[in-house]
Design a binder for these strands. Structure first.
Length: 464
RNA sequence: UCCUCUGUAGCUCAGCUGGUAGAGCAGGCGGCUGUUAACCGCCGGGUCGUAGGUUCGAGUCCUACCGGAGGAGCCA
């Protein structure tokens, strides 16, 4: 008997076909007239398959009682048109097997009404809920879309190292990787660590970005992108930060900042379009249950050109707005979250790409403009999420790069291989980084980043 | 890390100005029903986050600690 996933059954299943369905019970309703309705979900889609089990089915009396919310079952039966409302077809069981019972006294998930906070504590079971099933499917589609976007443009998928010994871009605190016996070192109360004794012979960390390594391939084999886990040991506790998250980092030779912005915009638009096209049912759910404004926001992204605004003009807009902000802005100061929200959510009401930031605000590798004050950086800000992409044209001139390293208190010797790229056959190039989870937030309308990654890692939390 | 809020039954919450705990859902039992967040009735279930303190008396007030959430900083 063919095993068919419920998504396919509900779409293409024809009355009269004999099939097998397997999955997890969402709920059961009994009729004392001698049959039961089972709502079965197998994760392939939002909707459930309704199963009708007559008491004439072998073992009905024994097994139906353990068909409770959360139980796993396998059902053979025949598809029939459903006389009831709410479903085109339903499965009339000819045999029912309970694969695994779920004690209703202890099974934490109920038919309705759980907070995301509660579900976070049972992250191993929350994918069995509508919301987290939908998030998982949309996240999967976004990942697929990322690969197809770049592959369709001839980009090379590049795996940059997870473990690194370069403190690249000084982008925040890093997780140290060591095989040294810390407990023993603590007992010895030694004054300094002999890193030669460590696994790599020097301090090593988990990567905070694959950018610098990606540049080496971009300047050799052309357009490429990384897509992998990224780690930040910042003690940040917000709805937008994770200690472990997934980042996409394309890097393109011969691109200037304009090209970079165009690619970023096209990239986001493609992800949004793909999800709208392929996850319509899940998006319907997000629109109805999670964020009523999500569809309008995505439609704007899909159809309207992003605003491109130099940092200097952004400052002027904020200053002229007459709005009271907790933090005043002046040229040279970093934009606060409240300013970014004002720009993207209120003033423009759509994605905004800010570019040409003061050099003092940005890392050493961003290309200096001729004005001597700004660098060719760009941040893509979107409503509800804030910064979703950060990128820049890279500084390809060796002398300027080395000078900038000095300004940022970095030792060029530590980046010898990176400066070599400028020493030998340097080219203008650019790239950016997109936080996958922030993209999932944007597209689903979910508000907490901890709910769009299967097992979130945040300060004090690495359960599961 | 800072600021604010919060911690009462398995879950979601109520409990007003202090007088020793309630509802809905879930669970059990019974009834009804081609049902679909099913419905109706009954029943079981809580040392009110922890430790102190004020008081004749604390879920309710005070202090500390421990969870959780939101905002800020940092950034993707």
């Amino acid at each position: 008997m063919p095993v068919t996933r419920i998504a396919t059954l509900l779409k293409n299943g024809q009355p009269g076909t004999s099939i097998n369905a397997r999955g997890w019970v969402r709920t059961r309703r009994d009729s004392k007239n001698g049959f039961s309705f089972i709502e079965l979900n197998d994760g392939s889609c939002m909707r459930n398959l309704q199963i009708v089990v007559e008491n004439s089915v072998p073992g009905y009396e024994d097994s139906i009682r353990s068909v409770t919310t959360g139980a796993s079952i396998s059902v053979d039966g025949v598809l029939k048109e459903s006389p009831g409302k709410g479903q085109r077809i339903e499965l009339h069981a000819t045999s029912l097997t309970v694969l695994g019972a779920a004690d209703p006294q202890t099974y934490p998930l109920q038919k309705k009404g759980h907070t995301f906070e509660f579900l976070r504590d049972i992250a191993h079971l929350r994918p069995r809920t509508n919301t987290f099933g939908a998030v998982a499917r949309v996240r999967n589609r976004i990942s697929w879309s990322i690969h197809s976007f770049f592959q369709n443009r001839g980009f090379l998928y590049l795996n940059t190292p997870i473990i690194t010994t370069s403190d690249c871009e000084g982008a925040g605190e890093m997780f140290q990787v060591t095989t040294l016996d810390l407990a023993m070192l603590a007992r010895k109360q030694i004054e300094s660590i002999d890193w030669k004794q460590d696994f790599f012979g020097k301090p090593a960390s988990l990567t905070v970005s694959g950018q610098l390594e990606a540049e080496t391939y971009a300047t050799a084999i052309g357009d490429c992108y990384t897509f992998g886990p990224t780690f930040r040991a910042e003690n940040s506790n917000t709805t937008r930060h994770l200690a472990e998250f997934w980042m996409v980092e394309p890097e393109m030779p011969f691109y200037d900042l304009e090209d970079n912005m165009a690619l970023a915009e096209s990239f986001i638009r493609t992800m949004v379009s793909d999800v709208l096209e392929h996850c319509a049912e899940d998006m319907e759910f997000f629109s109805q249950r999670i964020d009523p404004g999500v569809m309008a926001r995505l439609e704007t992204i899909r159809t309207k050109d992003f605003i491109r605004l130099p940092y200097t003009e952004a400052i002027e807009i904020i200053q002229r707005s007459g709005r009271k902000f907790d933090y005043a802005v002046q040229w040279g100061s970093d934009l606060q979250t409240e300013h970014e929200r004002f720009l993207t959510e209120e003033h423009f009401g759509q994605p905004v790409i800010l570019y040409n930031y003061p050099r003092t605000l940005k890392p050493f590798y961003m290309r200096c403009n001729e004005d001597g004050k700004t660098v060719r950086a760009m941040d893509v800000l979107v409503p509800g999420v804030g910064e979703i992409i950060g990128g820049s044209q890279r500084e390809e001139r060796l002398d300027v790069l080395v000078q900038r390293m000095g300004e940022c208190h970095l030792n060029p010797d530590d980046y010898w291989w990176y400066t070599d790229l400028r020493k030998y056959g340097t080219v203008p190039h650019a790239g950016f980084g997109l936080g996958l989870e922030r993209a999932v937030l944007l597209i689903t309308g979910m508000t907490n980043i901890r709910d769009v990654i299967p097992f979130p890692r945040t300060p004090g939390h690495a359960e599961f």
